[in-house]
């Protein structure tokens, strides 16, 4: 059952038997408090950050030969030609909620942000958000306003960049002695 009267609701998406509420990032605390108190979503299962930079522009990987060699970013040859639906902004902060009750339910919240934009922390709604939000900050570089201790959690404190951003290269760490004769 889809919750009704949710404050800050932008859009409701049903897919694969899962409900996604796209919500206004400016009102996230209000939304979450409502879902916890009025709808009974008592557990915050997870918070993820997704970077959609380059979504739908470089298409998908494949085994396509080009004059420059193998292009791993060309369209595959299995018939996939459709460009994915565009996304409103670069980053999505995704909250997975769970109702631990006799009739359990799951719900996904999606809030869209551009680079540099921040979102309010929901630590005061669910204390579980503490490390989840720190991880999103560390990996994707999204700031959470009002978080009590927003520092890197998985990467070293002096690390530069946010590894799960799409413009962060794989194998980006310099390796000693490589390339030396």
């Amino acid at each position: 059952m889809t919750p009704t009267g949710v404050p800050g609701l932008v859009e409701t998406v049903e897919a694969h038997g899962e409900t996604t509420l796209v919500v206004d990032p400016a009102r996230i605390v209000e939304t979450c408090t409502h879902l916890r108190d009025a709808e009974g979503f008592n557990v915050l299962v997870d918070v993820s950050g997704v970077d959609y930079l380059g979504w739908g522009t470089k298409d998908v990987a494949g085994y396509i030969g080009t004059p420059a060699g193998r292009d791993l970013n060309a369209t595959g040859s299995q018939g996939f030609q459709r460009v994915p639906d565009p996304k409103p902004k670069r980053f999505a902060v995704v909250y997975h909620l769970l109702k631990v009750a006799d009739e359990p339910e799951r719900l996904r919240l999606e809030a869209w942000l551009d680079d540099g934009e921040e979102i309010d922390s929901v630590v005061r709604v669910w204390p579980a958000a503490d490390w989840f939000e720190r991880e999103v900050y560390d990996m994707v570089g999204i700031g959470f306003r009002g978080h009590p201790y927003l520092v890197r959690i998985l990467m070293p404190e002096d690390w530069e960049g946010h590894p799960l951003r799409k413009d962060y290269p794989v194998g980006g760490e310099p390796v000693r002695f490589s390339g030396e004769a």
Partner: peptide, 26 residues
């Protein structure tokens, strides 16, 4: 848990594992 986002290609756009130990340590 596994949160999987696909753009329609052969590689996942984003995979996120919801780790129970991570939550437990909190």
């Amino acid at each position: 848990g596994c949160y999987l986002v696909s753009d329609g290609g052969p590689k996942p756009w984003r995979v996120k594992f919801r780790a129970p130990s991570f939550a437990a340590l909190q």
